Computed example of a mutant assay.
Amino acid sequence: MTAPDETQAIRLSKRLAADLGCSRREAELYIEGGWVQVDGRLAEEPGLRVRPDQQVQLQSGARAEEAPPVTLLLHKPPGYEAGLGGIEPGAHASRSRGAPEALTLLQPDSLHAEGGPPVRVLQRHFRQLQCHTPLPTEASGLVVYTQDRRMARRLAEDIETLEQECIVQVTGRIADGGLQRLCHGLEFNGRALPPIKVSWQSEQRLRFALKGIRPGQVPAMCAAVGLSVVALKRLRIGRVALAPLAEGQWRYLRPWERF
């Protein structure tokens, strides 16, 4: 059998433009939009080299349109670095050395089965993602990654005013009147804290709902009433909740969802 002549291979976008009689830009949009197959397999890279003997096919219903930016919601497990690092949701401390990036968990096969993407899953959805909802390496829970500049700006500007809900696992014996003090009456870094919603979920689990969380704030609050933080899990940012994602799973932010 004669080996394929790779010297005759050309860019997929050039081949598609010639086959369709369209512009190179239109061909790139078809390819990047996930509408093109090479030898029966999806090809999303305009620069892919294809030979004359290979079959290039445009799927029915194809549209030469810019794919809109997406926002992804991830359930980060403990031990992964997310966003700007820190000790508490909202923190801006340095990264933990050696911790893997939570961004690497965003893969097509870890999409939540019932999350129902608003668009088809494309490789371009996992590029140029930014996180403005940092979560400490040792914590778990909801983290948001986005390609949308407007969403990124909104999160960066509003993260201090969005209410975040966390479940905090603790050890120790709470001081008399400690729950009331957690809700209102404690100081942090020399400043009185505003009223905070804190309630028991079980004998060792507290629910916090608060805004403008500062680095180390929740551990310091717990320590002030005789408790030590063992684990922290973020369940909600604004109106967007973590459920039903399992650890390591992600889904798309739906068009109608708002933080």
Rank of each mutant, 00 (worst) to 15 (best):
R149G: 10
A209F: 06
S96V: 15
P215R: 08
P4M: 00
C166W: 07
P4C: 00
I87D: 10
E32Y: 01
H92M: 00
T133Q: 04
G90C: 00
V38C: 10
E45F: 08
Q128V: 02
D53Q: 11
Q204S: 12
Q55N: 11
P89N: 02
R63C: 11
Q249I: 03
Y145Q: 03
L232C: 09
Q164K: 15
A139W: 00
A192M: 03
R63V: 15
A82W: 04
A43E: 13
F208P: 08
A231W: 05
V225I: 13
D53F: 09
S13Y: 00
L42Q: 11
P219Q: 10
G116H: 13
A113W: 14
A91F: 04
Q130T: 07
G40W: 13
L122W: 03
L106R: 13
S199W: 00
R181A: 15
V168N: 05
V36L: 10
Y30N: 04
L193D: 03
A3N: 14
L129Y: 01
H132T: 01
S202F: 00
P244S: 07
A175M: 03
L58S: 08
P136G: 13
V38M: 07
R254A: 07
L142M: 11
P77N: 12
A152K: 01
A102N: 05
Q57L: 15
R11E: 03
R258S: 12
P195C: 05
I174P: 09
S96T: 14
G172K: 05
F259C: 03
A139L: 03
I167P: 00
I196K: 08
E45C: 05
A223G: 08
Q57D: 14
Q59S: 10
H92R: 08
R11P: 06
L111D: 04
A209D: 06
A67Y: 04
A93Q: 11
E88D: 12
P89K: 02
A209G: 12
T2Q: 15
H184L: 04
Y145T: 01
R258N: 11
G47C: 05
H75F: 15
V70R: 01
I237P: 00
E66N: 06
Q130R: 09
M221P: 05
P108M: 04
L142S: 11
H112T: 01
R24Q: 12
R15K: 08
R51C: 07
R51P: 08
E165Y: 10
V121C: 07
L210D: 03
S94D: 14
P134Y: 11
R149Q: 14
A64E: 13
R63M: 13
P194F: 01
R51I: 02
D176A: 15
R205N: 10
R15I: 02
T104I: 13
Q128D: 12
L235A: 03
A224Q: 14
A175R: 10
L182E: 08
V70T: 01
V36E: 09
V119M: 12
L12M: 02
D176K: 14
L186H: 08
G226E: 04
A113S: 14
Y80M: 07
E165L: 10
V70C: 00
G21L: 03
R49I: 09
P244Y: 08
A3W: 13
R173D: 14
R207T: 03
V121L: 14
